[in-house]
Design a protein around this nucleic acid. Structure first.
Lengths: 199, 199
DNA sequence: GTCTATAGTACGATAGAC
DNA sequence: GTCTATCGTACTATAGAC
């Protein structure tokens, strides 16, 4: 800390991104200044511009990386035999993945309007691909949903909402929450028997 | 328009609030300047301070009014005979009320972190009262939910999510959306037969 | 009640020394 | 690669004329 000079390009870049992620999530992109980010990393503001073109690029890169990683993770899930198992797997995955990355998730949902139009379009396309993954599951006849597209958006909103209140070490464990939400998702989608009715 | 002087205290105040509501929702509290709000109303920036102590008070008043009106509206709903009917009524109400006030809703959910700590506590208390209204419904034995508090948060997140995608004049009517979401909420809460299975 | 003008501060981004 | 210093701009909020 407080080291004044030296070569740290492999380390400073990620640290800038980590600091920006945390600060943007906590205070909002528009509120956070480049000086704050620099102070968090322990460099001067000017040094940030060796690693990012500008503040907007910093936000965009964080969101794009998050969405690309999310997509890669969901598409790497093992194939499940039944529509019900696929939906349950998705619900558990979505909650687990989002609980692991609260800052990235928060930014991805809250800072869309601070993206430039072109950057917004790129992120929206990635998000749409993620939604399509769930929609494909829900389109299976086993669910008989009148509107799978709408159900997709409803379920994703429900599952993502867990990040608004879940706190590590609280009354419910991560597993509890995954089970309870997966059950609600299965029931909402019209499956009679959820995974575990807890009781 | 472009009138330069005169007495408009009864009219300028509400117009400032309307402009702030629209601009905050569209661009975010932190991004919008007092000059932008003033320009939208047609006065100079300094004139705003005759109607609000500062920018923070403007945001707080908008959020507080929204939450108070929302609470008054939900508490004025006619009493329904069964738990299922109460949940369906709540789901339809929540969606209808939120679709009618997209800007206020957006601000109430997105700008919480831009409130001062004291103002945040006030708004959170109001939100908690609204959640309690639904939680009371869900605590009825008819639903047999393992965790009514969590189910409350899950359902509110799902229902509120409709504001992220619904557009007037789109594929689904307001009534369609209310029906489909109410059905999903009823099923998620563990009620076998929803209001209308649409088929 | 609204205006013009401005004090005081903070910002994003860049230039040039080391 | 990081620093110091700074340019040009924008902001919130206030003071004082009308």
């Amino acid at each position: 800390m407080a080291r004044k000079t030296g070569s740290h390009s492999e380390i400073t870049g990620p640290r800038i991104r980590d600091a920006a992620l945390r600060l943007f999530a906590r205070h909002g992109y528009a509120t956070v200044s480049m000086r704050q980010i620099a102070a968090e990393v322990g460099v001067q503001a000017g040094a940030l511009y060796l690693y990012t073109a500008d503040k907007q690029a910093l936000l965009f890169d964080l969101m794009q990386d998050h969405m690309i990683n999310l997509l890669a993770a969901v598409e790497a899930l093992p194939q499940m035999p039944t529509p019900q198992a696929r939906l349950e797997q998705f619900a558990r995955f979505h909650i687990g993945y989002h609980l692991d990355r609260p800052d990235a998730v928060f930014i991805a949902y809250m800072e869309l309007r601070n993206l430039s139009p072109e950057n917004f379009a790129t992120i929206e396309a990635l998000r749409r691909r993620y939604e399509d993954y769930l929609q494909t599951i829900l389109q299976d006849g086993a669910f008989a949903l009148p509107d799978p597209k709408m159900a997709t958006l409803a379920l994703i909103a429900m599952l993502t909402g867990v990040t608004n209140w879940y706190r590590e070490g609280g009354r419910l464990s991560r597993e509890d929450v995954q089970t309870l939400y997966a059950d609600m998702a299965l029931r909402a989608a019209g499956v009679a028997g959820g995974a575990a009715q807890s009781g």
